[in-house]
Design a protein around this nucleic acid. Structure first.
Lengths: 245, 245
DNA sequence: GAGTGGTCTAGACCACGAG
DNA sequence: TCGTGGTCTAGACCACTCA
């Protein structure tokens, strides 16, 4: 049993979510009710709820209540294209894509290797499971690389359809570099993903390079840490050559 | 200017760390002093400090004080061995390795693909920059794979020396699978890494597989999110074959 | 308008660290 | 022993949601 009061309360509520006493999507008792039940002050109750929010177990909505977060499929980012494409089969995930033209700021300039203020096409992907948002992706393509105006494929939550479209347009990706880090969300990201300010997010920056070393696509992905992971399988080249022979 | 009182205080202190008013390693004013300076209550001051702790800017030591965290080199986990090996050149990083024999629990059994209760050699790596710990690594090798008793190489913070030793012992690694996620630390991990309970950590699980599909090594890495990243470069196989010809 | 969560205050007691 | 951060209390006001 945890020594701290707030940790104890958090454990008790966590157990109720785990054993189904509090069902998925159900509303938790109000903080004042929890105060009475656990004979604790509000800051203590809130500290307990904060722990659960950061674990991704609950969602707090100002003015409405605190709810058990609906479970959603784990997001897997992979260097194996096939695994990524399987995601599309999940019909309960809705993806909204907005496209616009932007100018490269310093960060994008460095990431893409283009001059500052260059023209870029930006695709913003917001994906939802039922009503809960669960991934944010921004894809940037230098102007002129893609002549088609908009993706005509079923959008993938992580923007893989852009790479598919590049492939169809004859753009050959020779190498892909992914940079992955763990951090806390920016306030606007926390709002978009409906996560707490201290919920860890998985941050992925990916650039796709053609055989000339030009960046043909860059992606900035922000995923909730509690249900996202990146998986990379690398085969030693020697082995690869032996087995494909 | 941030609307929230605690966010405002956090910003002000963050600025002082950024511009050198509060030097690296310096002790911050006590919370009571900060209360007076910002005319705020203690919970508000503490909430501000919590933000900075989660960003990795400060370290709080119970009974001692709050300090600006010393800067340390960014930890890069890579599928490019050469990049990883360069780390060893940094003489300011100290690595402590402890070796022991353990039995596989359920998690390790699933990770390594061995029977529960199998004998494993466990290497625990704790690395320090100056006095501040900054990475935790646990490496597991099934009993019998390595006949040498202890690593005789300079230990690498992330345990790469084990893989080097495997290579020298004639164990060929055919494939490596890395699973990367973002999460909050377990309480004991937060203690070990001297980070806050809500500081994001980068969690890496890696398994090395030989040509028979046997796991010859597994690694569990826990790194502070604010100064660690994983980088993966993948070349399309077609391109790879063309350029190596 | 009623109820919810978000923020802030003022004060208390405790556990830990260092001289 | 004394100052520090860790925890907890009791109460207040505000902003937001929804009937």
């Amino acid at each position: 049993m945890p020594a701290n009061r707030y940790a104890h309360i958090a454990s008790r509520i966590r157990d109720r979510i785990g054993d189904g006493t509090l069902a998925t999507g159900a509303r938790l008792p109000a903080e004042t009710d929890l105060m009475a039940e656990f004979a604790a002050s509000r800051p203590t109750v809130r500290q307990a709820l904060e722990v659960l929010e950061n674990e991704g177990l609950i969602v707090r909505r100002h003015g409405s209540g605190t709810y058990v977060r609906p479970v959603s499929d784990r997001i897997v980012y992979s260097n194996d294209r096939l695994a990524a494409d399987k995601r599309n089969a999940d019909a309960t995930v809705k993806v909204v894509v907005t496209r616009s033209e932007v100018r490269a700021d310093n960060r994008l300039s460095a990431l893409l290797g283009v001059r500052p203020d260059s023209r870029l096409t930006e695709y913003v992907y917001r994906s939802f499971h039922v009503t809960a948002p669960y991934s944010l992706a921004r894809i940037y393509v230098p102007f002129g690389v893609l002549t088609e105006t908009a993706p005509d494929l079923d959008p993938s939550p992580l923007g893989d359809d852009i790479r598919e479209q590049l492939s169809r347009a004859g753009v050959r990706v020779a190498a892909t570099m992914s940079r992955i880090s763990a951090r806390l969300p920016q306030p606007h990201e926390a709002d978009d993903l409906r996560i707490g300010n201290s919920t860890a997010v998985l941050n992925i920056e990916r650039v796709s390079i053609d055989s000339n070393g030009q960046v043909v696509e860059a992606a900035l992905l922000v995923l909730p840490g509690y249900n996202a992971e990146a998986v990379f399988t690398t085969h030693s080249l020697v082995h690869e050559l032996e087995t494909t022979r």
